[in-house]
Design a protein around this nucleic acid. Structure first.
Length: 845
RNA sequence: GCGGGAGUGGCGGAAUUUGGCAGACGCGCUGGACUUAGGAUCCAGUGCCGCAAGGCGUCCGGGUUCGAGUCCCGGCUCUCGCACCA
């Protein structure tokens, strides 16, 4: 910080300085006073059971890092706090809770580094966070604070797991995970930065481990469709649509030729509802079934289960070698190098459209976890297939053409147009059809032949919720040799995390909890025999996927969330948070809410009625980072300028939903505003009447602020108040109390401490937040005279002061009386454009 | 590649919803007042060129219109999310 702090108290001098008021604005003293007063008077306590007109104003709860509160946290919380305080002044009972998302790998890694159990560290971090948050003057009901690491909380996280388990939405399967060979641990996706471990920088490997999953894909369609009706930031909805990644297409069956010649394979046809599938039929997914005549080969993902069965003896060695090579390659290098590699299996499949045999390849450009893990390659009309076919000399056939294209000439590149002028060629009876018509026709034909069907595929995967780590809620499952996996009975929850000294992850890929025998050795809840606990813990995102349900019921140990309170407070009226959680947290929360709705535990299926993503703050044009050393420490600024100034500056520096540039110098502007508010209020004239012109200005300001706050246009709301302040003080005039008092109420959400103090000094005994909100009189907010722009041929040549209801003739007369205008009007106007109250345009030829 | 957002003074940003005085508000800067002093406070000015009259100005190029930062067409740049997704 380079700025000189403002003087808040008289300097120690022998002669009193007359320019320093006897009673200056002293934010430090006053903020301490009011924070204590709020606590004493329970000003911020929410009457959960009996409060009227409930309004749930929620912000994403923080991860309590050891570094303390980040300015980004405070930006988010302050924005929510202003909204909440405003709603309270509108007469709502506002609930603005705070909690801590304290499980997870961040905390655990930090604890490992310090060599202290996170059970010890986390409470310290939380204490520090709470101290900082209180200093910022948030309207939080601290009695309802929660931490996800509290057994009273995660007991219900485990309960939630069981609800999904009982509904068949939790299952276990082997899956690829991120493995850091250096830290010997599984990493969450978020812990992998550009293919490297975020802690040590080692290249992350793929490992296959048994994992617990939630069947979120079963909800894909609902998660997608509901978005349309949600009042959420458009960018967030777009990110979710993107993530869900719905695509319409077809599944087509290719029969592998000459099955009996392949050793060990038995062609036993099995019939499904839609089509006949034999054990070596290859199902592919395509969004372009219209191009099936151009499918000149098939590609399977290297790890596709059919590979072993169809590979011929001659090709076995090279196929296995390729498979081995690609499995060692981590996902990231695979993405970086887009060079096409692959191996021929020796097998051929019949193209159901042409009847021709086409070769079956494996290649890592086909992903096992999307579609069916197999594609029909149409090199003529897909860029990747074109590259592959070129690299391996496979045939390229044109089956779509624009008018005028030579149907026989070789394609220089893949022709991927599927819009109107493009038509099918070389496609038998389908030639001549448009792409969209052909899609339907081809699928219909394949359905008749039982060789295909229309399907919808999603990019969304099932949610892997298990973590082979220590710092999380243990998954409440017990494995019994006799009974198999048995859920822990609800009355036995929580399954408490044992306190251990050594929670270092090891090379086994198994949770550190697997070393705690006294903990995992249990008897089977069903048969009483010897059994073993699940030693994986659940993903942090599960903790945060339901916390908003817990706040109103946080003092209840008999239920996760009380139905009556839930009905009263939820869904959340206003949710504010960062767009970095646009997909994971917000999608998981929606999913969990839908599941609980289906289980008839919640009357709604969307948790957040309104969501707004706040922007990010940069500093002096650059991203804040520890390495740059340009991180804003809220404590320092609050110390120097006061919490009120800091809050107001954060809200003023840019549009809330975009964030902005934190410039150290800028904070002095809002501080000056508060200084002036202070002195105007202290010196306010209590005799006589307010200036009518000023009252008109006041009512306009009230209208502007009242409209801007719900829209989160905090920067313009503050600008409007500053503008009013300037008007009130022009020519060093003394403001009348009736001009200042409502301004204090308007300022209150932004700068609560100073507002309370001034409100009290005005003689009120109750909190300014229970004083209501100034109303504006539209008649008063309207001007007596308006300034209209006068243009000649579209160029502004002057302004006129007229009554708002003046007609065209009146405005024209007034305009022509203006010499500056008249001199441009040399002939009779050819035309006059009149916008009442705004503008007059005189058109001369 | 797909999708979202954005380009406006020296700087942060208003006005884009509904086409109607571009630059609100703040920072910074300039001048002045008060003052022993000022990095405090207060007053005035501040888009660019020009003594002025006036001209020019919202990423670039077209268009619609009496009138375009705002609408339409084409392009450029930045930014965020997803990405060999078939």
């Amino acid at each position: 910080m380079t700025d000189i702090p403002p003087r808040t108290a008289p300097s120690p001098r022998t002669v009193p300085d007359p320019s320093i008021p006897a009673d200056p604005y002293d934010p430090r003293a006053l903020e301490t006073k009011w924070q204590a007063r709020w606590e004493r008077d329970a000003t911020h306590h929410t009457d959960i059971a009996a409060g009227v007109r409930p309004y749930y104003a929620l912000m994403m709860f923080p991860y309590p890092s050891a570094e303390g509160l980040h300015v980004g946290n405070l930006f988010a919380f302050t924005g929510n706090d202003i909204h909440g305080r405003f709603q309270r002044q509108q007469g709502h009972t506002v609930f603005e809770p705070m909690g801590y998302d304290a499980f997870g790998i961040h905390s655990e890694n930090y604890a490992l580094k310090m060599g202290v159990n996170p059970m010890v560290l986390i409470p310290r971090n939380i204490d520090n966070f709470r101290r900082q948050l209180k200093r910022a003057g948030l309207m939080v009901d601290w009695r309802r604070e929660l931490s996800t690491t509290d057994p009273r909380y995660y007991r219900w996280t485990q309960w939630l797991f069981l609800q999904l388990y009982h509904r068949g939405l939790a299952y276990k399967k082997r899956a690829a995970v991120n493995w850091c060979p250096n830290d010997k641990t599984v990493l969450a996706n978020e812990q992998v930065i550009a293919g490297e471990c975020e802690r040590c920088g080692a290249r992350v490997e793929q490992r296959f481990l048994e994992q617990w999953f939630f069947r979120i894909t079963e909800y894909a369609e609902r998660l997608l469709n509901n978005l349309d009706a949600l009042d959420w930031s458009e960018s967030t909805k777009a990110a979710q649509r993107n993530w869900i990644g719905r695509s319409e297409g077809a599944e087509i069956v290719f029969r592998v030729q000459d099955i009996m010649a392949i050793a060990g394979a038995a062609a036993v046809p099995a019939s499904t509802a839609e089509m006949t599938v034999s054990q070596t039929d290859i199902r592919v997914f395509t969004t372009r079934p219209d191009t099936v005549f151009g499918a000149t080969y098939l590609v399977l993902a290297p790890e596709h289960p059919l590979v072993e069965r169809i590979t011929t003896d001659e090709e076995r060695a090279s196929v296995l070698a390729y498979r081995e090579r690609s499995s060692r390659q981590d996902l990231v290098t695979r993405r970086v190098s887009k060079e096409k590699t692959g191996a021929f299996t020796g097998a051929y499949a019949l193209n159901p459209a042409t009847g021709e045999p086409i070769p079956v390849w494996i290649a890592d450009y086909v992903l096992m976890d999307y579609g069916t893990g197999a594609i029909m390659a149409v090199p003529g009309h897909d860029e990747r297939d074109f590259e592959f076919a070129t690299a391996f000399g496979l045939p390229i056939v044109r089956v779509v053409a624009a008018p005028g294209d030579d149907e026989r000439s070789p394609l220089p590149t893949a022709y991927t147009d599927s819009q109107d002028p493009a038509r099918l060629v070389n496609s038998g009876r389908f030639s001549g059809l448009t792409v969209s018509a052909a899609k339907h026709a081809v699928v219909a034909r394949l359905e008749d032949q039982q060789r295909g069907r229309a399907v919808v595929t999603y990019r969304l995967h099932d949610w892997c919720i298990s973590r082979q780590r220590y710092w999380g809620p243990p998954i409440p499952i017990v494995y019994c040799d006799v009974c198999g996996p048995v859920p822990v009975p609800e009355q036995d929850l929580p399954v408490e995390l044992p306190r251990v000294d050594d929670f270092t992850p090891d090379d086994s890929g198994i949770s550190p909890l697997a070393r705690v025998e006294r903990w995992f050795k249990v008897s089977c809840p069903r048969c009483g025999g010897a059994a073993r606990r699940e030693t994986d813990v659940s993903d942090t995102f599960l903790d945060s996927a339901w916390y908003f349900l817990r706040y109103p019921s946080v003092d209840r140990d008999d239920v996760a969330f009380d139905p009556v309170l839930t009905d009263k407070w939820l869904p959340v009226d206003s949710y504010i948070g960062g767009n970095e959680h646009a997909v994971l947290h917000l999608l998981y929360s929606r999913f969990i809410t839908m599941v609980l709705h289906d289980a008839q535990l919640l009357p709604f299926e969307e948790p957040f009625t309104r969501f707004r993503a706040h922007g990010t703050i940069v500093r002096e044009g650059a991203k804040m980072s520890k390495s740059r050393g340009n991180v804003v420490n809220p404590d320092e600024y609050i110390e120097q300028w006061g919490a009120d100034s800091f809050r107001a500056y954060l809200m003023f520096l840019g549009p809330y939903e975009e964030g902005g540039d934190f410039q150290d110098r800028g904070i002095s502007g809002v501080r000056r505003y508060l200084d002036r508010l202070w002195s105007s209020a202290i010196d306010a004239d209590r005799a006589g009447d307010a200036d009518p012109a000023m009252l008109r200005k006041l009512h306009k300001t009230i209208r502007k602020v009242t409209q801007d706050i719900p829209a989160l246009s905090y920067n313009t709301a503050i600008a409007a108040m500053m503008e009013y302040m300037k008007a009130m003080r022009t020519g060093e005039r003394r403001a009348h109390i009736n001009e200042v008092e409502p301004l204090v109420q308007l300022t209150a959400p932004f700068a609560p401490h100073i507002a309370e103090e001034l409100w009290e000094r005005f003689g009120h005994t109750r909190s300014v937040f229970d004083s209501g909100w100034p109303s504006f009189d539209p008649a008063l907010a309207a001007d007596e005279l308006v300034t209209m722009a006068v243009q000649v041929n579209g160029k502004t040549r002057g302004t006129i002061q007229v009554a708002p209801e003046v007609d065209q003739a009146g405005a024209l007369a007034a305009a022509m009386a203006d010499a500056g205008v008249a001199k441009f009007v040399t002939t009779d106007p050819a035309r006059v454009i009149f916008v009442p109250g705004r503008l007059l345009n005189i058109v001369v030829r």
